[in-house]
Amino acid sequence: MRVVIVGAGSVGRSIAQELLLSGHQVLLIDKDADDVQASRVPEASWLLADACELASLEEARLEECDVVVAATGDDKVNLVVSLLAKTEFGVPRTVARVNNPKNEWMFDESWGVDVAVSTPRLMTALIEEAVSIGDLVRIFEFQQGRAAMVELTLPDRSEFAGRRIGDVRWPEDTVLVAIIRGQRPIAPTPDDAIESGDELLFITTAEQEAQLQRLLAPDVKPRSAEA
């Protein structure tokens, strides 16, 4: 997979290093990158350019990449890059970093953003997850499909503890995608059983979130899943 990352700060470099370890091709674009930064991720390709200019993105051959990650510390830049990637180059997947939570409402398909990643939202979600057994916590949204990844820790004495996944009728448009048990991720199969204390990760829609919580944790007062 060829990935172009705009923004070679600590966030962009960290993403690049993880992708390179997984065997992907990475190009980092930054108008202020220097030799010191480049030496920190020598396996990546580097382009010293302004990613908000079409000529720079043409030089980066964006039409040949699979994913564009807009990871700068400037929300305006991340939006412009996402929009250009989608409308001018037809990039299949765009991921944009949200720096200011007040700007989250703009990071959607109208600006070419497929996935918006808000650090404050993720941190808040993880904090809430750590202290709120039975609460449904929205981790992040897939903007294009209006779906979201949500997490719920199965309460003690839940009637679903020990139940086969294949025997549970989940709400419509809801898929159990992972179980985290004792820090170990499990890819669920119909024959697996869920246990109290399991962290259950679902892909679902906003309309089904309340029903999912009522199903798994009826004794917990529903609240907004927004982090």
Rank of each mutant, 00 (worst) to 15 (best):
L79A: 07
I5Q: 08
R146P: 06
W170Q: 10
L200I: 06
V168S: 11
E43L: 10
R61N: 15
C52V: 13
V4L: 10
V77S: 11
E199C: 10
I165K: 08
W105I: 14
W105D: 13
S22C: 05
D198L: 05
K76D: 15
Q17C: 06
R138C: 12
R121T: 11
H24L: 09
V4A: 13
V6H: 03
A33N: 01
Q17N: 14
E109Q: 09
S14G: 15
Q25T: 10
V177W: 00
L57W: 07
A225N: 03
G73M: 04
Q208C: 08
M123A: 15
G197N: 05
T124I: 03
T153N: 04
A71C: 05
K76Y: 04
P222W: 09
V131Y: 12
A96I: 02
G162H: 01
Q211G: 08
P190H: 10
P222Q: 08
L28M: 10
Q208M: 14
F107P: 11
E151M: 06
V115E: 12
S45W: 00
G134L: 04
Q25F: 03
P92N: 03
E226C: 01
S82D: 11
P42M: 07
A130E: 12
P171T: 07
F89K: 08
V77L: 05
S56H: 02
R138F: 03
Q213H: 06
S10V: 11
L176V: 06
A147I: 04
L57M: 10
E141P: 00
V117A: 14
E63D: 13
L79K: 04
K31N: 15
G197L: 01
P101L: 04
M149K: 00
I186F: 05
D191R: 13
R146Q: 15
I139Q: 06
R121F: 11
V115P: 04
Q183A: 14
T189P: 00
F202C: 12
I5P: 02
G182F: 00
L154K: 03
V137R: 01
N78F: 04
P155C: 07
A161E: 12
I15V: 15
V3G: 10
V175D: 10
Q25D: 15
T153A: 05
L201V: 14
D219H: 09
L200V: 09
V220W: 01
P188N: 08
E88A: 14
P120S: 11
V117G: 08
V68L: 13
A147M: 12
E59W: 00
P155M: 09
G90K: 05
E43Q: 11
R138T: 12
E207S: 11
D74N: 14
G134A: 04
P92D: 10
G12S: 07
L47Q: 14
A130C: 04
V115R: 00
Q25R: 04
V67H: 03
E129A: 14
I29M: 12
G12E: 09
I139P: 04
